[in-house]
């Protein structure tokens, strides 16, 4: 399990990274935190000719708050997000997800951008980004562009990033009053990838939810927004009948493929359990 041979380039700036990616073409691979890429190299599954290491680009590691909201740079380490007071205050959903992601030593090195750019459908952060309506900022040879999170994740390990592009980070909208987040995942062991998980964000007013974004992960090829569930609860009292209807609506929302640790049937069942538990938490939420 030793990595195959490759060349290595350090990008000193975003412009330099774009230039290096252009120079080396499709055989180049961006190296950020390396917590997923390095295992794939050691397994000899990833075979890039050139690694473009973006870690020297210090600007990309920033977490910035302004009136537009929070911008999390692509190179922000999971641990920095986890321990950020701004994130805790502005993005409680992200703050709730962070301790569930792997383990302390992985979070010290793994990056926000890496988690998102990999496009692993079982990852936590992509679901949070979709639930919160984040916009991904992308740099490329033709300049910068933005892609909403809901359109960024395109399939298993597939995103809207084009060859030669670099993810700069994500802009999260400012926290809106009345909105409450919930995060829940089921893992066999703490820090494992989820069997099923969900990130939810919606307006809670007098026990009724509206504008709910209920986003599952590990049940499809990308984060899956449970639209039927959201419609079933929209503006209704969160009583047993509403929650039953919401869970029933998942039948059309989800079509989870099975994997090694959970069959399709099990995932579907667990998705229902999660929905029920999270909606019950909303129903008993204090302070809204």
């Amino acid at each position: 399990m030793k990595a195959p041979s490759f060349s290595y380039e350090r990008a000193e700036s975003v412009a330099n990274a774009i230039e290096l990616l252009a120079r080396h073409g499709p055989d180049a691979q961006i190296l950020a935190g390396g917590q997923s890429l390095m295992p794939m190299l050691n397994f000899r599954v990833a075979r890039p000719a050139v690694l473009v290491d973006i870690n020297p680009i210090a600007d990309l590691a920033a977490i910035r708050v302004d009136k537009k909201g929070v911008f999390i740079g692509a190179l922000a380490r999971h641990a920095d997000i986890e321990h950020s007071g701004e994130v805790a205050e502005q993005l409680p959903l992200v703050a709730a997800a962070m301790p569930q992601i792997a383990h302390p030593a992985i979070r010290n090195r793994g990056t926000f951008g890496g988690s998102c750019a990999l496009g692993d459908p079982a990852a936590e952060l992509p679901a949070c980004c979709v639930a919160l309506g984040a916009e991904f900022r992308i740099a490329g040879p033709k300049g910068e562009r933005s892609v909403p999170a809901a359109k960024f994740f395109a399939g298993v390990y597939t995103t809207a990033l084009e060859p030669g592009e670099l993810l700069l980070g994500a802009q999260f909208p400012a926290r809106q009053p009345g909105y409450v987040s919930r995060f829940l995942e089921l893992t066999r062991r703490h820090g494992d990838y989820a069997m099923v998980g969900a990130a939810a964000h919606g307006r809670l007013d007098k026990g009724r939810l509206s504008d709910l974004k209920f986003v599952y992960f590990a049940v499809g090829d990308r984060p899956i927004m449970a639209m039927g569930l959201a419609r079933a609860v929209e503006g209704k009292p969160l009583d047993a009948a509403t929650i039953d209807a919401a869970v029933a609506a998942l039948k059309d929302d989800l079509d989870p493929p099975g994997d090694l640790h959970a069959s399709s049937v099990l995932k579907r069942h667990l998705a229902g359990v999660i929905a029920r538990r999270m909606l019950n938490e909303y129903a008993t939420h204090k302070g809204a």
């Binding site: 290595y8 190296l31 390396g34 917590q35 390095m38 295992p39 050691n42 690694l51 290491d53 870690n55 641990a79 302390p104 030593a105 992985i106 010290n108 090195r109």
Partner: peptide, 13 residues
């Protein structure tokens, strides 16, 4: 000063 996995980092890094 931070704990990391040394198998997931290149010596070059």
């Amino acid at each position: 000063g931070r704990i990391v996995r040394s198998c997931l980092m290149l010596a070059a890094q």
